[in-house]
Amino acid sequence: MKWIGILLFCTSSLSLAQRSDFRHIDFTKADSIAYEHQNESLENLPILTHNLTAHLATDVEKFRAIYTWVGISIENDYSSYLTTKKKRKKLSDKPTALREWNNSFTPKVFENLVKHKKTACTGYAYLIRELAALAGIKSKIVDGYGRTATLLLDGNSIPNHSWNTVLLNGKWYLCDATWSAGKIILDADGPRFEQDYFDGYFLASPELFIKNHYPLDIKSSLLDQPPTFEAFLKGPVVYKAAFRANIIPKAPQEMQLTIVKNEDISFRFSSEEAIEIADLSLVLNKGGTSRNVLPKIIEDGKEYVLTHNFSTPISYDAHVKLGDDFIASYVVRVKRK
């Protein structure tokens, strides 16, 4: 067996702050309160915060109610995103000016948010921070790069996303309310927002979060030894289903892979929760045609290894799936020799 992409660095310490720290907490009550107040106005944030948190005992439950409420109540405004993108591009080589613009623009974003409950990522992050502060919980806005299957970046890309860190029980945690809220659909009628609340980005594992979130201030990654920006750009595409199951791609570390025909590639992942081997699969796509293959799968403690022999000299998109969901994607170029 030949391994492609040896693990080159340790991305974290053993005490990563993540949702599993609160596995003993039942968030049902917090979520129920958020849904109960879903249609409440933003005109009076102290009252909204009180209604969301007054009957919850712990800070993490209070923050959960705030986070869920934002995710189910606020619409992602694509036009605001385009405005932010344009300004970020203009100031991409002036970080101080960019921070000053963010600080001046954020209140304007918030004014629009209050009136229409619509905003871009900056507004989501700002609202999370303000509501948390009113609940006595410290949160920070993090600016950086978000990377998805439809938003691939390169070394010249400008910062395009904002999210939050939050301090709970003396530890900092990561979350992304924008991506939790839903997604922008681009079709013939123009962009539209599709509400689809997803809590996988709530107190996400820093080791997984860094796969598609890269902060301008690398300390905000919450990792002792974070990857370089170059390594981040070269990594595989990681989908939201990975966050649902907290599955972390370990190897290969790069999305673009080149091998000689009849070589194996082994895709290694870790998971805090046990995975049914039968639910793991590998899908190969070439020229718009997809086929499922049966890789050799080995469970190694909390890690899972899918190995497949690539015998045909051609280029593939290789997708690792859990059930019906994509976890990560790679591009495999198989040469004759």
Rank of each mutant, 00 (worst) to 15 (best):
W3V: 14
I4P: 01
I6W: 03
L8A: 12
C10P: 00
T11D: 08
T11A: 09
T11S: 07
S12I: 05
Q18G: 01
Q18T: 13
Q18R: 15
S20M: 09
H24K: 14
H24D: 14
D26E: 12
D26A: 10
F27A: 00
K29F: 02
S32L: 10
S32E: 14
A34K: 09
H37E: 11
Q38N: 06
Q38S: 11
Q38P: 01
E40I: 03
E43Q: 14
N44C: 10
P46F: 10
T49L: 04
H50M: 09
H55N: 15
D59R: 02
R64L: 01
I66E: 01
V70A: 05
I72T: 09
I72C: 03
S73A: 15
I74R: 00
T83C: 07
T84R: 08
D93I: 07
T96E: 15
T96N: 08
L98F: 10
E100T: 12
E100G: 04
W101F: 15
F105C: 05
K108Q: 14
L113N: 06
K115H: 08
C121S: 13
G123T: 03
Y126F: 09
A132Y: 07
L134Q: 11
G136C: 02
G136P: 04
I137M: 00
S139I: 06
I141H: 01
D143Y: 11
G144S: 07
L153E: 07
N156H: 08
P159Y: 04
P159A: 15
N160T: 13
H161G: 07
S162L: 05
W163K: 09
V166P: 01
L167G: 02
L167E: 13
N169P: 03
Y173R: 04
L174D: 02
L174Q: 09
D176C: 12
S180K: 10
I184W: 06
I184R: 08
L186Y: 13
A188F: 08
D199T: 04
P206F: 04
L208S: 08
F209V: 05
K211Q: 12
K211D: 04
H213T: 11
Y214H: 03
I218G: 01
K219R: 15
S220W: 07
F229S: 03
E230T: 13
E230S: 12
A231H: 08
A231W: 00
A231P: 00
A231C: 03
A231N: 11
F232V: 11
L233P: 09
V237Q: 04
A242Y: 02
A245S: 11
P249G: 05
P252G: 06
E254D: 13
M255D: 06
L257T: 12
T258S: 14
V260W: 05
E263T: 09
I265N: 00
F267E: 01
E273K: 12
E276K: 13
G287M: 01
S290Q: 13
V293M: 05
L294M: 11
I298D: 02
I298L: 08
D300W: 01
G301Q: 05
G301H: 06
E303P: 00
L306G: 00
T307F: 04
S311Q: 10
P313K: 07
I314N: 08
A318Q: 05
H319Q: 12
V320L: 15
K321E: 11
L322W: 13
D324C: 05
I327H: 00
Y330F: 14
V331E: 15
R333C: 02
R333F: 04
V334H: 07
K335V: 09
K335W: 00
K337V: 13
